[in-house]
Design a protein around this nucleic acid. Structure first.
Lengths: 251, 251
DNA sequence: TTCGATTTGTTCGTATGTATT
DNA sequence: TAATACATACGAACAAATCGA
């Protein structure tokens, strides 16, 4: 018998890759919501007309990419931005003594504007496209450490206003995910060193001209679609940016 | 029949984990040298008395950790530090225009000293232990961009002298690997911003007091054994540090 | 508390495809 | 062409964790 899937059109060679991209498509379409279980491996196998091993191989890769989360005896779930597990995957600032702490955030401003040139290229949209621009202050140990300047395409977040934003429960990416179905799964960051300008220095309670770490981040969703551009300015007097490749472990 | 391995003592639960740690042990012991193939999956399966699927699962993880490299039709090889594939995994400085370029390096000094406090804690050795300390200048596009201050335990590199070091063919980690059997498989980096001191500024041909990126790196071998501590100072006027989690792709 | 159904985790085995030498 | 090695796909059995009856 020919598998119902193998008989389909133009599989990108291996069967499990086809299964993976179909699951990814459904994930992107919101068929299963974050935190919810996807169908069991046995059910998916029957549905796709492939063996359970093929399903497992497809899911293996999605789990490695942190898009799905397996739990023995329970099921396989769409990863959320509310677990500690994923928090420190997107937040890299730690104390110089090695301490890891989640920041308290304070919204400083929320404006509707249009994409400047830099915003546009990073977000792959046309200059002048409506955007939301949010300024955020992150405190660690009660002291301001990071100043965030966030730009997102307005079209992705239709009715987002400053009260919704400031009154959110968890992280920003958690808000994107839970209320707008926008799932940040990967980030790309470029770091450089600079001198604090007067306005930023005031936010961070440091002197103008003090050295600061500047992080330019693009947040990406399924199929590497950019959904947020963020410039963070960090006071690294007592904190550092941690880049620990492959200590993800648990593999 | 009971598998020859399962009958052995105290497997850390799953069989494939035991297989993995045995392969890792042999790798660390230098049974197979970098660039050489390890035995075929079928041969390993017979040797361990387990199924080929179990071998594959163990090797899968070692490949994901970039310790091994599979090539269909050829075999499975011990990863080396000479392939482009791995170079940019350990070198993160790119042009602000996105250009990736391998640096020209110039050795500035090579000294035999002893571990200072910071060196000792990072390398997990006692303060005062003999070390080698090397200063290196990295040029991109002909201009100095990175100043490296490298400390390694002398015991790991018995007869290493400055001519061997300066006259090496490829990368520094390639030298560690090929001549001393020291295999760097992972790095952990902590980044901060600072003002250039006079001596470093002179090396980088910038003004003292200019902002620089400071990278403190620990290079790790099998079982997370630290083998090198390196402080890099980067002029980020025209370059950036790229942290691209999970664009490793090919998975 | 116990039991059974469900779901993922591990291990085995086999067959066939594809790349390399 | 033939042999070898990894890649894909299938199927089956049992273990371990979870959850509700």
């Amino acid at each position: 018998m020919i598998g119902t899937l193998a008989a389909g059109a133009l599989a990108p060679h291996p069967l499990y890759k086809e299964v993976k991209s179909r699951i990814t498509r459904d994930l992107a379409a919101g068929v299963w919501k974050p935190g919810e279980p996807i169908p069991s491996e046995a059910r998916l196998a029957r549905g796709f007309g492939v063996s359970i091993g093929t399903i497992r191989k497809a899911i293996d890769e999605l789990v490695a990419e942190r898009i799905l989360l397996r739990q023995q005896g329970r099921g396989t779930f769409v990863a959320t931005h509310s677990e500690d597990r994923t928090l420190f995957y997107f937040f890299h600032i730690v104390g110089k003594d090695g301490s890891r702490e989640l920041p308290m955030t304070e919204m400083l401003s929320f404006r509707k504007t249009t994409a400047r040139k830099e915003d546009a290229t990073r977000l792959a949209i046309a200059p002048g496209t409506p955007t939301l621009r949010i300024q955020n202050l992150l405190k660690l140990g009660g002291k301001p450490v990071v100043f965030d300047d966030i730009v997102v395409p307005g079209a992705l977040f239709p009715d987002l206003d400053e009260h919704t934003f400031a009154g959110r429960d968890g992280t920003i990416y958690g808000l994107y995910q839970a209320r707008y179905g926008i799932n940040v799964i990967r980030i790309s960051e470029r770091l450089s060193s600079a001198l604090a300008t007067g306005t930023v220095a005031a936010r961070l309670a440091i002197e103008a001209g003090a050295p600061v770490l500047v992080i330019k981040r693009v947040a990406l969703s399924y199929n590497d679609t950019p959904v947020e551009y963020r410039v963070s300015t960090v006071n690294t007097a007592a904190h550092e940016y941690l880049s620990d490749l492959w200590k993800t472990e648990g593999r």
